[in-house]
Simulated scan of single mutants.
Amino acid sequence: MIYLEMKPDALKYHLEYISNNSPNNATCLKEKLRKERDKYIELISMSVRRTDEYRYLKKCKVLYYFLYTNIEKIATANIVEMENYEKSFSYYFPKFFEDVGEDKYIEISNNLKTLFENEYKRFSKGYSIEIDKKKKRWNAYEYIKLLRIKVCPYCNAQFTLTIHSTNVETEGGPSRAELDHFIPKNEFPIFSMSLYNLVPSCKVCNQSLKHSRKTSFSTHFNPFDTEINNQFYFSRQFKKYKKKRNKINYVDAILGETNNFEITISPKNIFNNLSLTPEEKILNKKVNNNIKLFRLKSIYNQHKDFIQENILKARIYNELYLQQLHLDFPNLIQNYDVRVLVTKEASEFQYNILSKALHDIIETEILSPKI
């Protein structure tokens, strides 16, 4: 729901981790894929030609040769490239092995899952890599720390702090956000180590809400998508008072003095639904799928008190009031830009909970010029 920027250094370190053995002799993923390919070459040499087993082994060799030569691209592919890889794998993998029989198809599928899932488990602790002639440890903890995200990008409602441990015996180990596989590693094992598929997230979103539910780059928004901030729109829908003949108390609600409203989340193009292009309809569908998957409406309506409090602050600290404070206390109040004080810019969403919702609501109701 909020944009998460991939850092160039993360791609640089991950590429080294995937491609080259550790200075401490840990075997990299690319080398493991080469060994798998060589294993099938050896098995082919011992197999009888023109048999089903021989054809199956040759297919396995081709698969691992493809992965060996392309793993760097797969591990660092961006959003657009990942979507293409996802579609290609979904189509070509079952088609390539469709004539080997169900047992052999399950065998090669499980082989892939075991190799890549073990590699992902190893990434939890990682190993040392050599960058610019210096050793550096690269693992899930270092990856998340480098991204500098402090809140879950799926919901923007939970903190995901990275805490370093200075003494394991007295403090325990370090703490970090969970890593969600945006497209599930069980179904797409070859993307288990793809950075754009590894999304730092809170436990609620990762384990309770998303878990193993199927998502894809074509049906849901990935936080690394640069368009994500612009596609979700938060607003308030005011309720009617039963005791007041079903009238809406707009004054109290707008002033932030009542929580008799609902937080609504919708695609930004919802108001032009009749004239949407096919691309805009796809974007809207992705937004709605994220809202449903992560139960965003339910989550945000449990934070109405916090949102109400900040709306009230935005009303109080209007521009005239801040200008007067600046005149009275010039050394204390140096910036009286209301937006700076009551909302966060898009670049700051990843550091502040509920910041996207507050930005949209306060911008629409208070800060935008009224015609």
Rank of each mutant, 00 (worst) to 15 (best):
L283A: 14
K304H: 08
T264Y: 00
P278Y: 11
L274I: 07
L276Q: 08
I270T: 01
F294I: 10
P278Q: 09
T258I: 00
N273I: 12
K268V: 05
N289K: 01
S275W: 14
P267I: 00
K286C: 07
I291S: 12
T264V: 06
E279Q: 14
E262N: 08
I299A: 03
I282S: 07
P267M: 04
K292V: 01
K286P: 05
F271L: 12
N289H: 01
L293N: 11
E279V: 14
Y300M: 11
N273R: 15
N284S: 09
N259G: 09
P278N: 14
L293Y: 13
N284H: 13
L293E: 00
R295E: 11
K285N: 15
K292R: 15
T258W: 00
N288M: 06
I263H: 00
N272C: 15
L276T: 11
N272I: 02
S275M: 08
L296D: 04
R295T: 12
I291D: 05
F261G: 02
N273Q: 13
P278L: 10
I291L: 07
I270E: 03
N290Y: 02
I291N: 06
T277K: 01
S298N: 12
L283N: 12
S266Q: 12
I265V: 05
I265N: 02
N272H: 14
K268S: 08
V287D: 13
N288S: 11
K281M: 05
F261A: 01
S275T: 08
F294P: 00
K281L: 06
K286V: 02
S298V: 01
E280R: 15
L283G: 04
L274R: 10
V287Q: 10
N301K: 04
S298E: 14
F271H: 12
K285S: 10
I291T: 01
F261T: 02
F294S: 08
Q302V: 03
N301S: 15
E280D: 07
L296P: 01
E262G: 11
L276M: 14
N272T: 05
N289L: 08
V287P: 06
K292E: 01
K304G: 13
S298I: 03
E279P: 01
K304R: 13
P278S: 11
F261K: 06
K286G: 12
N273C: 10
L276N: 09
P267N: 08
S298D: 09
N273W: 13
L274K: 06
K297Q: 03
I299F: 05
N301C: 13
L274N: 14
N284Q: 15
I265P: 00
N260Y: 10
L293R: 11
T264F: 06
N289M: 10
E262D: 15
K297E: 13
N288I: 02
Q302C: 07
